Simulated assay, not measured.
Amino acid sequence: MDRIAILIPCFNESKTIKKVVEDCLKSVSSIPNSKVYVYDNNSTDNTAELAKKAGAIVRYEHKQGKGNVIRRMFREVNAECYIMIDGDDTYPAEEIPKMANYILKDKYDMVIGDRLSSSYFTENKRAFHGIGNKLVRWSINFFFKNDIKDIMTGYRAFSLEFVKTYPVLSRGFEIETEMSIFAIVNNMAIKNYVIDYRDRPMGSVSKLNTFSDGFRVLRLIFTLYRNHKPFNFYGILSLILMIISIAVFIPRVWIPYRMTGVVANMPTLIICGFCAIAAIISFYSGLTLDAIQRQERREFEFRLQEVRKFF
């Protein structure tokens, strides 16, 4: 088992990968049994060859998408501490020992390289990326009641327990959002660590599509909120349906009936009845799913205890 495993997912990063690998190796040169793994994701340039020459262990993932690459990494690599860093040379590799120290000595489960509290908004040249990062950060911290400073950063450190219990479901760039929510809902120890961010060098192109990938991230937040906070989600839906039912029933059905003794709007009464029934079903669905979710969290705690024994 490695002491520190540095994981670099790559797709067409030939302009920067050599420097990134060399910087990573230099940063852990004093830490025994530390390795750099580059996982090539169908690059059409010579990313893999350059990474291998620079000293990295090169492996391949043929399913396209960052989430697919990270799934492969987490399955194949065993280490006490994992560092995930992008191959575009936007993150400072010299911070790796400090981030790893939080995992190995302070027993955090995930250390987040926080760009947004430092130089991101001055270095980043893509305006909508900054807006999207703020929106995603606000959404997760509001719905999941946490204080993560940078949700979509690709610079993170993980414990063995996190990596071997985290089920990677996302296929693309929404993977960082999924990681953050997984850590929050399972009450894992999270550390925000401020880093300096530098924009991509000339000729290096971002693979993130601001709008399509941003939409997928927001859809994922909605889905995970429904899955992990079912009582809140279905309780709110139940309340909305009941308010609509009552708001329509009283002026359109109840008041005319009290005045005339006749139900003048039978279709409206039927619709209000269906809304009320749907509200009740939604409420009890939330209760049932919440009980299932609580049971899953209990089982997760047992899985955490088994991971360290297995490895």
Rank of each mutant, 00 (worst) to 15 (best):
N146T: 15
E80L: 10
R75S: 15
W138D: 12
I17S: 00
D23A: 14
Q64T: 13
L304C: 11
P92T: 08
S117F: 06
F302L: 09
L289I: 06
Y108N: 04
K125C: 11
R156W: 03
Y60L: 11
I140M: 03
N68Q: 12
K52R: 13
I131T: 14
K19I: 09
V77S: 06
Y82V: 06
F300H: 14
Y37T: 00
R115I: 09
A93G: 03
F300M: 12
N41I: 02
D89Q: 04
L289T: 05
S282C: 12
Q295R: 11
V185Q: 10
V111Q: 04
L104H: 02
T268K: 04
S14T: 10
K207E: 13
Y39I: 12
L239N: 07
D45F: 07
V262F: 09
K105A: 08
K18G: 03
V163Q: 01
R59T: 14
S118V: 12
T288S: 13
T268I: 15
E161R: 08
F142C: 08
Y234E: 01
F182Y: 15
C272Y: 03
T177Y: 05
V307G: 03
F128N: 12
R297D: 12
I140R: 00
C24L: 04
N42F: 08
I292L: 09
A51F: 02
M179P: 04
A93N: 01
V38R: 00
P267R: 04
A247F: 13
I277G: 07
K309M: 10
V20D: 00
S117R: 08
R200K: 12
F310Q: 14
T268E: 13
K26M: 10
S139W: 06
A279D: 00
K207R: 07
F233E: 00
R75W: 07
S159N: 10
P230K: 04
G132A: 08
D147C: 09
A56Y: 00
G130K: 09
R198P: 02
S43G: 10
A183D: 04
R308A: 11
R258S: 13
M202C: 06
M73S: 07
K63W: 03
L169F: 10
F215G: 09
L50W: 02
F158A: 01
D40R: 02
E22K: 13
Q295N: 13
N227H: 11
F311V: 14
R156K: 15
K207M: 06
R258H: 10
F302Y: 06
V307N: 01
S159A: 11
V307R: 02
K26S: 15
I151R: 00
I112T: 08
N33R: 09
G261S: 07
D196E: 15
V205L: 11
V58A: 10
C24V: 01
Y234C: 01
F182W: 15
M152L: 14
L218G: 04
E306S: 12
V205I: 15
F144D: 06
Y39P: 00
G113M: 01
D196L: 08
I148L: 11
A48M: 07
Y284Q: 12
M242D: 08
I190F: 06
Y225S: 05
Q305F: 05
V111G: 05
E95Y: 07
Q293A: 12
F142P: 02
G273T: 14
G87Q: 03
F11A: 08
K35V: 03
A54K: 01
Y166A: 04
E161M: 05
F182D: 02
